[in-house]
Design a binder for these strands. Structure first.
Length: 208
DNA sequence: TGCCAGGCCCTCTTTAGGGCCTT
Protein backbone atom coordinates (compact mmCIF):
# COMPACT_ATOMS: atom_id res chain seq x y z
CA UNK A 1 0.00 0.00 0.00
CA UNK A 2 1.43 3.40 -0.97
CA UNK A 3 2.03 6.02 1.70
CA UNK A 4 1.90 9.82 1.58
CA UNK A 5 4.02 12.21 3.67
CA UNK A 6 2.09 15.16 5.12
CA UNK A 7 4.42 17.97 6.18
CA UNK A 8 4.13 21.16 8.18
CA UNK A 9 6.80 23.79 8.93
CA UNK A 10 6.89 26.44 11.61
CA UNK A 11 9.11 29.30 10.47
CA UNK A 12 10.32 32.78 11.38
CA UNK A 13 8.20 34.32 8.62
CA UNK A 14 6.59 33.69 5.29
CA UNK A 15 9.40 34.00 2.78
CA UNK A 16 12.71 32.13 2.63
CA UNK A 17 13.73 34.57 -0.10
CA UNK A 18 13.50 37.34 2.50
CA UNK A 19 15.71 35.46 4.94
CA UNK A 20 13.06 33.55 6.87
CA UNK A 21 14.06 30.11 8.16
CA UNK A 22 12.32 27.03 9.50
CA UNK A 23 12.17 26.57 13.27
CA UNK A 24 10.26 23.27 13.41
CA UNK A 25 9.23 20.53 11.02
CA UNK A 26 6.79 17.66 11.39
CA UNK A 27 5.97 14.90 8.92
CA UNK A 28 3.12 12.42 9.31
CA UNK A 29 3.00 9.28 7.20
CA UNK A 30 -0.50 8.37 6.05
CA UNK A 31 -1.21 4.89 4.73
CA UNK A 32 -4.64 3.50 3.99
CA UNK A 33 -6.25 6.47 5.72
CA UNK A 34 -4.29 5.80 8.93
CA UNK A 35 -1.34 7.63 10.48
CA UNK A 36 1.38 4.99 10.59
CA UNK A 37 4.50 7.03 11.48
CA UNK A 38 5.58 10.50 12.64
CA UNK A 39 8.68 12.71 12.54
CA UNK A 40 8.97 15.96 14.48
CA UNK A 41 11.83 18.21 15.51
CA UNK A 42 12.61 21.79 16.39
CA UNK A 43 15.67 23.06 14.54
CA UNK A 44 18.30 25.72 15.09
CA UNK A 45 18.98 27.72 11.93
CA UNK A 46 20.92 30.39 13.84
CA UNK A 47 18.22 33.02 13.54
CA UNK A 48 16.11 34.83 16.10
CA UNK A 49 12.39 34.27 16.55
CA UNK A 50 10.44 37.51 16.88
CA UNK A 51 7.74 38.10 19.47
CA UNK A 52 4.89 37.74 16.97
CA UNK A 53 6.06 34.26 15.97
CA UNK A 54 6.57 33.24 19.60
CA UNK A 55 3.03 34.37 20.41
CA UNK A 56 1.66 32.69 17.28
CA UNK A 57 3.45 29.34 17.62
CA UNK A 58 4.65 29.15 21.21
CA UNK A 59 8.19 28.57 19.92
CA UNK A 60 10.76 30.68 21.80
CA UNK A 61 14.37 31.63 21.12
CA UNK A 62 15.41 29.38 24.00
CA UNK A 63 13.64 26.40 22.42
CA UNK A 64 15.30 27.02 19.04
CA UNK A 65 18.75 27.56 20.55
CA UNK A 66 18.51 24.23 22.37
CA UNK A 67 17.43 22.40 19.18
CA UNK A 68 19.73 20.41 16.87
CA UNK A 69 21.20 22.19 13.81
CA UNK A 70 18.79 22.79 10.94
CA UNK A 71 20.94 20.87 8.44
CA UNK A 72 20.97 17.78 10.67
CA UNK A 73 17.19 17.90 11.14
CA UNK A 74 16.54 18.41 7.42
CA UNK A 75 18.76 15.45 6.48
CA UNK A 76 16.80 13.29 8.93
CA UNK A 77 13.51 14.64 7.54
CA UNK A 78 14.57 13.83 3.97
CA UNK A 79 15.55 10.31 5.04
CA UNK A 80 12.16 9.91 6.73
CA UNK A 81 10.27 11.02 3.61
CA UNK A 82 12.49 8.82 1.42
CA UNK A 83 11.16 10.13 -1.86
CA UNK A 84 7.48 9.61 -1.05
CA UNK A 85 4.91 12.00 -2.55
CA UNK A 86 4.06 14.85 -0.21
CA UNK A 87 1.01 16.84 0.89
CA UNK A 88 0.71 20.09 2.84
CA UNK A 89 -1.98 22.61 3.72
CA UNK A 90 -1.16 25.51 1.37
CA UNK A 91 1.62 23.44 -0.16
CA UNK A 92 3.19 26.41 -1.93
CA UNK A 93 4.34 27.64 1.48
CA UNK A 94 5.78 24.40 2.87
CA UNK A 95 7.25 23.38 -0.48
CA UNK A 96 9.35 26.55 -0.77
CA UNK A 97 10.73 26.09 2.77
CA UNK A 98 11.35 22.37 2.07
CA UNK A 99 13.30 23.28 -1.04
CA UNK A 100 15.16 26.18 0.58
CA UNK A 101 16.21 24.25 3.68
CA UNK A 102 17.24 21.13 1.74
CA UNK A 103 19.16 23.24 -0.77
CA UNK A 104 21.29 24.49 2.14
CA UNK A 105 22.46 20.95 2.80
CA UNK A 106 22.73 19.83 -0.82
CA UNK A 107 19.73 17.51 -0.68
CA UNK A 108 17.32 16.74 -3.49
CA UNK A 109 13.89 18.39 -2.96
CA UNK A 110 12.05 17.42 -6.11
CA UNK A 111 9.14 15.72 -4.35
CA UNK A 112 5.68 16.21 -5.88
CA UNK A 113 3.40 18.20 -3.58
CA UNK A 114 -0.39 18.03 -3.40
CA UNK A 115 -2.22 20.79 -1.53
CA UNK A 116 -5.16 20.30 0.85
CA UNK A 117 -6.25 23.94 0.34
CA UNK A 118 -6.65 23.41 -3.40
CA UNK A 119 -8.30 20.02 -2.85
CA UNK A 120 -10.67 21.48 -0.27
CA UNK A 121 -11.74 24.21 -2.69
CA UNK A 122 -12.64 21.47 -5.18
CA UNK A 123 -14.32 19.07 -2.77
CA UNK A 124 -15.88 21.41 -0.18
CA UNK A 125 -16.91 24.60 -2.01
CA UNK A 126 -19.55 25.15 0.68
CA UNK A 127 -16.95 25.61 3.43
CA UNK A 128 -16.94 29.13 4.95
CA UNK A 129 -13.21 29.28 4.28
CA UNK A 130 -10.38 26.82 3.76
CA UNK A 131 -8.19 27.48 6.77
CA UNK A 132 -6.97 24.29 8.42
CA UNK A 133 -8.75 24.99 11.70
CA UNK A 134 -12.04 25.79 9.99
CA UNK A 135 -11.94 22.59 7.93
CA UNK A 136 -11.03 20.52 11.00
CA UNK A 137 -14.07 21.90 12.84
CA UNK A 138 -16.30 21.45 9.79
CA UNK A 139 -15.40 17.76 9.53
CA UNK A 140 -15.17 17.16 13.30
CA UNK A 141 -11.56 16.04 12.94
CA UNK A 142 -9.70 15.00 16.09
CA UNK A 143 -7.41 17.56 17.67
CA UNK A 144 -3.91 16.38 18.48
CA UNK A 145 -2.23 19.28 20.23
CA UNK A 146 -1.61 23.01 20.11
CA UNK A 147 -2.55 24.63 16.81
CA UNK A 148 0.36 26.26 14.99
CA UNK A 149 2.84 23.69 16.23
CA UNK A 150 4.22 21.52 13.46
CA UNK A 151 3.15 18.06 14.61
CA UNK A 152 -0.37 19.10 15.61
CA UNK A 153 -0.92 20.88 12.29
CA UNK A 154 0.62 18.04 10.25
CA UNK A 155 -1.64 15.53 12.03
CA UNK A 156 -4.66 17.75 11.44
CA UNK A 157 -3.80 18.02 7.74
CA UNK A 158 -3.37 14.23 7.62
CA UNK A 159 -6.82 13.74 9.16
CA UNK A 160 -8.22 16.20 6.62
CA UNK A 161 -6.60 14.28 3.76
CA UNK A 162 -7.98 11.01 5.16
CA UNK A 163 -11.44 12.64 5.25
CA UNK A 164 -11.06 13.66 1.61
CA UNK A 165 -10.01 10.13 0.66
CA UNK A 166 -13.01 8.77 2.56
CA UNK A 167 -15.38 11.18 0.79
CA UNK A 168 -13.92 10.33 -2.62
CA UNK A 169 -14.48 6.65 -1.92
CA UNK A 170 -18.00 6.95 -0.57
CA UNK A 171 -19.27 9.68 -2.93
CA UNK A 172 -17.61 8.60 -6.15
CA UNK A 173 -16.81 4.94 -5.71
CA UNK A 174 -13.03 5.06 -5.84
CA UNK A 175 -11.25 1.94 -4.73
CA UNK A 176 -7.73 3.19 -5.38
CA UNK A 177 -6.66 6.70 -4.38
CA UNK A 178 -3.11 7.58 -5.26
CA UNK A 179 -1.17 10.82 -5.14
CA UNK A 180 -1.47 11.28 -8.91
CA UNK A 181 -5.28 11.42 -8.57
CA UNK A 182 -4.95 14.19 -5.95
CA UNK A 183 -2.52 16.12 -8.16
CA UNK A 184 -4.94 15.87 -11.07
CA UNK A 185 -7.91 16.86 -8.94
CA UNK A 186 -6.25 19.99 -7.56
CA UNK A 187 -5.39 21.12 -11.10
CA UNK A 188 -8.95 20.64 -12.31
CA UNK A 189 -11.27 23.60 -12.67
CA UNK A 190 -13.96 23.62 -9.97
CA UNK A 191 -16.50 23.40 -12.79
CA UNK A 192 -14.88 20.22 -14.10
CA UNK A 193 -14.42 18.34 -10.81
CA UNK A 194 -17.37 16.03 -11.41
CA UNK A 195 -16.29 15.19 -14.95
CA UNK A 196 -12.71 14.61 -13.85
CA UNK A 197 -13.67 12.25 -11.04
CA UNK A 198 -16.17 10.42 -13.19
CA UNK A 199 -13.51 9.87 -15.83
CA UNK A 200 -10.92 8.74 -13.31
CA UNK A 201 -13.20 6.34 -11.47
CA UNK A 202 -13.94 4.59 -14.73
CA UNK A 203 -17.62 5.40 -14.72
CA UNK A 204 -18.39 3.03 -11.84
CA UNK A 205 -20.75 5.47 -10.19
CA UNK A 206 -20.97 9.15 -9.40
CA UNK A 207 -23.20 11.22 -7.16
CA UNK A 208 -22.84 14.32 -9.37
C1' DT B 1 4.36 48.22 14.88
C1' DG B 2 3.79 47.01 10.38
C1' DC B 3 5.59 45.36 6.54
C1' DC B 4 8.14 41.88 3.92
C1' DA B 5 6.07 36.51 -0.81
C1' DG B 6 3.87 33.95 -4.10
C1' DG B 7 0.75 30.71 -6.25
C1' DC B 8 -4.02 30.09 -6.80
C1' DC B 9 -8.64 31.68 -7.62
C1' DC B 10 -12.67 34.72 -8.46
C1' DT B 11 -14.88 38.31 -11.04
C1' DC B 12 -18.01 44.10 -11.53
C1' DT B 13 -11.84 39.81 -15.78
C1' DT B 14 -8.63 38.53 -19.56
C1' DT B 15 -4.42 45.19 -21.66
C1' DA B 16 -6.47 43.68 -13.80
C1' DG B 17 -7.16 43.83 -9.16
C1' DG B 18 -7.73 41.88 -4.95
C1' DG B 19 -8.71 38.03 -1.56
C1' DC B 20 -7.14 33.59 0.26
C1' DC B 21 -3.70 30.75 2.73
C1' DT B 22 0.67 29.69 4.97
C1' DT B 23 4.37 31.80 9.41
Amino acid sequence: MSSIAIIDFETTGISPNMGDRATEVAIVMLEGGQVVDRFQSLMNAGVRVNSFITQFTGITNEMVQAAPPAEQVMREAARFVAGRPMVAHNAAFDKKFWQAELARCGQDASHPYACTVLLSRRLYPQAPNHKLGTLAALHHLPSSGRAHRALADAEMAAHLLAQMQHDLRTRYGFTELDHALLMGLQRTSRYQVGAYLKARVGGLRSSI
